[in-house]
């Protein structure tokens, strides 16, 4: 089956996701690492109607000696080069510039990690890189630890979105940082894209239910036995979560609503 998605905007009163004047109807973003073959990655993209993928510049063979990963990404899909491997702002900036010079456009996902054990993003360095690259005309999507102050600085620095981690990258732990992501959803006016740790379609749906604007998934799909099925499941889940958010899902209740034990006496 080809693209099975329906645009929620067609069904309910929704606006498409807009990042730097580019419209995205699919709010499910895909990371491209860890796949067992590039053909499988390509099938995942085609079968789910994905509109944007992120690729590490470190994995692109600029000289094209090998089968180049970019040959497996349809031209219609927005390419978001990321700075994986950068340990500080300076390295991230250099990677972004190399990417632009190589012809991969001016969109960049900033990933700065100076810790190979936990792979947590360094917010301070990310803010610095975002500021400089935004001034240079890059559309910057920064991956960050969900900290309100850092998110505000990213807004000031010119970020196009904010991409908080849901939990440790590659961990499949889901939204461990839920409460802090909710703060960003409430307080930051840029699109909030939950970027790391999402391990199942239900977790992705939940991220969307609470108001995330998009979800980026990689490991849970790339390392699944059947990545194509799982990618489709994620795509549907993101859509379902978006519809639930738009429909203003009623809050969960512990028990049946009895009377009004605290204020009821006033009306007796």
């Amino acid at each position: 089956m080809e693209n099975v998605r329906n645009n929620p905007a067609e069904n309910v009163d929704d606006k498409p996701l807009i990042i730097a004047d580019t419209i995205f109807n699919n709010r499910f973003f895909l990371g491209t690492g860890k796949f067992k073959s590039k053909q499988e990655l390509e099938t995942c993209i085609k079968k789910t109607g994905i509109e944007i993928v992120t690729v590490a510049l470190r994995r692109i063979d600029l000289e094209r000696h090998e089968e180049n990963i970019l040959e497996y990404i349809p031209h219609s899909v927005k390419l978001l080069v990321n700075t994986s491997g950068a340990r500080n702002a300076e390295e991230a900036i250099r990677i972004a510039r190399i990417s632009k010079e190589a012809g991969y456009g001016n969109w960049v996902k900033i990933e700065i990690m100076n810790d190979s054990k936990y792979l947590l993003p360094d917010n301070n360095e990310t803010i610095k890189a975002t500021e400089i690259l935004s001034k240079e005309g890059f559309v910057v999507l920064p991956y960050m630890f969900p900290d309100l102050y850092a998110a505000r600085e990213l807004v000031k620095a010119g970020a196009a979105t904010v991409m908080p981690l849901g939990s440790f990258i590659g961990s499949n732990q889901g939204l461990k940082a839920e409460e802090f992501i909710k703060v960003l959803i409430n307080e930051i006016d840029l699109p909030i894209i939950v970027d790391a740790g999402i391990g199942s379609p239900s977790q992705a749906a939940y991220a969307m239910e609470i108001g995330a604007d998009a979800v980026l998934v990689n490991t849970a799909i790339a390392t699944a036995s059947d990545p194509v099925s799982i990618a489709r499941a994620f795509s549907l889940a993101v859509e379902a979560g978006r519809l639930a958010y738009l429909g203003k899902l009623p809050k969960e209740k512990n028990k049946g609503n009895a009377s009004s034990p605290l204020s009821g006496f006033l009306y007796e």
Binding site: K36, K38, L57, R58, R59, L62, H65, G85, I98
Partner: peptide, 19 residues
């Protein structure tokens, strides 16, 4: 590697110092 379901990674970094 391909036959066993692994993607052989040849390019995993490029020295940005050289640029």
């Amino acid at each position: 590697l391909k036959a066993k379901g692994f993607d052989p990674i040849l390019t995993d970094w490029r020295s940005i110092n050289r640029q």
